[in-house]
Design a protein around this nucleic acid. Structure first.
Lengths: 112, 112
DNA sequence: ATAACAAATGAAATCAATTTCATATGAAAG
DNA sequence: CTTTCATATGAAATTGATTTCATTTGTTAT
């Protein structure tokens, strides 16, 4: 009988790596509102195009984003089903626990 | 009127960094079953004590774990409220999407 | 107060992911 | 078929987090 609670730790790591980076999180935040093409994303988060492209590639490989070609533009869409619930949980966690000794900072917090 | 959908990206990053590392994910997996002290964790995941301690510190700072002193032992407990639902979502995601071009590998997958 | 065990810590070394920059590819329009 | 706009890619450089190792702190028992 196989143990279902056992995790493939390295696989999960590969997923979470995408959320552990400011550029990628900024992209996710931008796409939360609506699908955007590469140029629009780069402008929205104020980062270089190639930097954004590299990030988009990994996010897409892990199915956190989806791409669709539209003319010469490539439009990226957030995988809402997976990403939104996770962000909600973390949002709640950060708000609940952000405090003196915690590296987590929520929007309301004014910390050094 | 403030925009509630705006995320503090760097803060989220600080949270997710803890999940983007094999050692820390192994610790989380071990603590999923029951609380353990440092020595027990190190044995369970077969890693050095100081390596485990460094990881435990960060996990605890981010409130992913909680500590309690018990005699000379320190017992670490997983923050189930936050962590379990996240892992469930990722588990589902990985099972759903693991495939040829995806770096994510679920338990059932035999990939190079 | 000392020994024995458990865990934490600091700093240097290592490692892996991100960024950068120059270049290549691809799509549409003229 | 050449130009232009949009994006992707490869490889070197950089960055930042993790690991390692020696040492320290803390707890309990003698």
């Amino acid at each position: 009988m196989k143990d279902n609670s056992c995790m493939a730790a390295s696989s999960y790591k590969d997923f979470f790596v995408n959320f552990a980076n400011k550029t990628k999180m900024d992209i996710i935040a931008a796409l939360r509102k609506k699908p955007l093409c590469v140029g629009e994303i780069a402008e929205a988060i104020n980062e270089e195009q190639s930097k954004v492209s590299h990030s988009l590639k990994k996010l897409t490989q892990c199915k956190i984003l989806e791409v669709k070609q539209e003319g010469k533009k490539r439009v990226y869409t957030l995988n809402h089903d997976t990403v939104l619930p996770i962000l909600q949980i973390v949002e709640k966690h950060v708000h609940q626990y952000c405090a003196k000794n915690c590296p987590l900072k929520c929007l309301g917090c004014k910390k050094k």
